[in-house]
Design a binder for these strands. Structure first.
Lengths: 156, 156
DNA sequence: GACAAAAATGCAACAATATATCATTGCATT
DNA sequence: AATGCAATGATATATTGTTGCATTTTTGTC
């Protein structure tokens, strides 16, 4: 019962804690949410997380879910897929936030792309335009092989 | 009163019309919405469009706004900024849908990037990964010069 | 111009997504 | 024990987006 919640390793938020303070911790709720996201191989919506939790016998409200998601986002453990209002677990290094994501317009599966070169070329091009890509996320709409082969009726 | 609504030139949706059908037309409501978006130099939200229209003495409901936005989106006249739930006018060629957008995380200003090379290099890299970038949109979080110079308190 | 068909809009209700606010609990530090 | 803080609970509400149907406007045809 009195097991301590683990401190998150390499956690950016950790650094902000004054010395001697307790670290940023992965509580059971946070872990549960993260595990749901990791188990799913597609982006999951906030209110679906509430459903999943209720199925597990745990009632949580929207505010709690969003706070939890905020925490996980802040600490680089999950990403938000803006085009879907949904969330995926972070599969890259926690410190490597050169984040590119591709979402398949057919099946909505979203994968992180770990490609420093691509990210860098994007960054240098943006800097020519007077914009800085400092850790900013790049979200791409594409289509996966499967969905290319068997296109959705509506999508053409 | 019986002025005809203009047909939209180079409109993709045009091609889908059965022969003899009337073209896709820019009505006064659609033009009004488009003009608001063009006048603003920042992305505008759907419910803010309702406000703007009401200020002009025209009462419109959400359904109407979203239908109008759908139309404008379908016909390549506006783009949706997913990270903001907001809309910007299309500044590029209607046929040139190699769409990249950069949003400043500080001031939310969003600009279309017309860079075929960048888009192409992105596409070829994605194809190596088995994804196709067929007309798909690329949305980028960055930061503009101004906001770099005078950062927001919360943003650091 | 009259007419019918199609497109566009109005309207009302509702669904989905997200945040604000205040209270409570539990652990860590003093 | 007292205090402070992080986390969660609970309730209400704000914001964003959709559906279904009625009505009006526009257009193509006669």
């Amino acid at each position: 019962m009195s097991e301590r919640n683990p401190v998150i390793p390499d956690c950016p938020a950790e650094a902000e804690n004054p010395r001697g303070r307790q670290g940023v911790r992965l509580t059971s709720l946070r872990r549960a949410i993260l595990e749901i996201l990791m188990a799913a191989d597609f982006p999951v919506k906030a209110y679906d997380l509430i459903e999943y939790m209720r199925d597990k016998g745990k009632r949580v409200t929207p505010a709690t879910i969003y706070r939890t998601l905020d925490f996980l986002l802040q600490n680089g453990l999950v990403h938000r897929v803006n085009s879907l209002n949904a969330y995926i677990p972070c599969t890259g290094e926690h410190n490597n936030h050169a984040l590119l994501m591709v979402t398949c317009s057919g099946c909505q599966k979203t994968t992180e792309i770990d490609d420093q070169d691509l990210y860098d070329s994007m960054r240098s091009r943006l800097e020519e335009l007077g914009m800085s890509l400092q850790g900013g996320c790049i979200e791409i709409q594409g289509m996966c092989k499967e969905c290319m082969r068997y296109p959705q009726p509506s999508t053409g």
